[in-house]
Computed example of a mutant assay.
Amino acid sequence: MARIENKDQKCQQIERMIAAGKGVTEACREFGISEKTLYRWRKAATN
Score class of each variant (00 low, 15 high):
A27E: 09
L38R: 03
W41R: 08
S34D: 14
A27T: 03
V24D: 13
Q12N: 12
K7V: 10
V24K: 11
R29F: 12
R29V: 06
E26H: 01
I14Y: 00
I14N: 00
K22F: 14
A45N: 13
R29H: 11
L38V: 00
A44S: 12
K22M: 15
A19H: 06
E35S: 04
R42K: 15
A19Y: 07
F31K: 01
Q13N: 14
Q12S: 07
Q9R: 00
I4Y: 05
A2G: 06
K22P: 00
A45E: 15
A27S: 15
A44D: 11
Y39C: 05
I14S: 01
E30I: 07
E35D: 07
A20G: 05
T46S: 14
I14A: 00
R40W: 07
R3M: 11
M17N: 07
M1V: 03
G21L: 10
R3V: 10
M1K: 00
A45L: 12
F31H: 04
D8R: 01
E35G: 08
I4T: 06
G23W: 05
T25K: 08
E30S: 12
K10H: 10
V24P: 00
A45V: 05
A2V: 07
D8N: 02
T46R: 10
R40S: 07
N6H: 12
Q13C: 02
A27L: 07
N47E: 13
E35P: 00
A27R: 05
E15T: 13
K22Y: 15
K43W: 12
A19Q: 14
Q13I: 08
K10L: 11
R3L: 15
R29P: 00
A19K: 10
I18W: 04
I4M: 08
A20R: 11
K36E: 15
S34G: 09
A45S: 14
F31P: 00
R40A: 14
R42C: 10
G23N: 08
D8S: 03
M1R: 01
T37W: 02
L38M: 02
T25D: 14
E5S: 06
D8E: 04
A20D: 15
K43P: 02
E5H: 02
W41Y: 08
A19D: 14
E30R: 10
T37G: 02
Q9A: 06
K36S: 13
A20Y: 05
T46I: 01
W41H: 12
G23Q: 10
K43L: 11
K22V: 12
I33W: 05
E30M: 14
Q9D: 08
K10T: 03
T25E: 15
A45K: 15
K22W: 14
I18Y: 06
I14M: 04
M1W: 02
E35M: 02
C11V: 04
A27C: 08
T46L: 09
I4S: 06
G32N: 11
N47L: 05
D8A: 01
I33R: 02
K7W: 13
N6T: 04
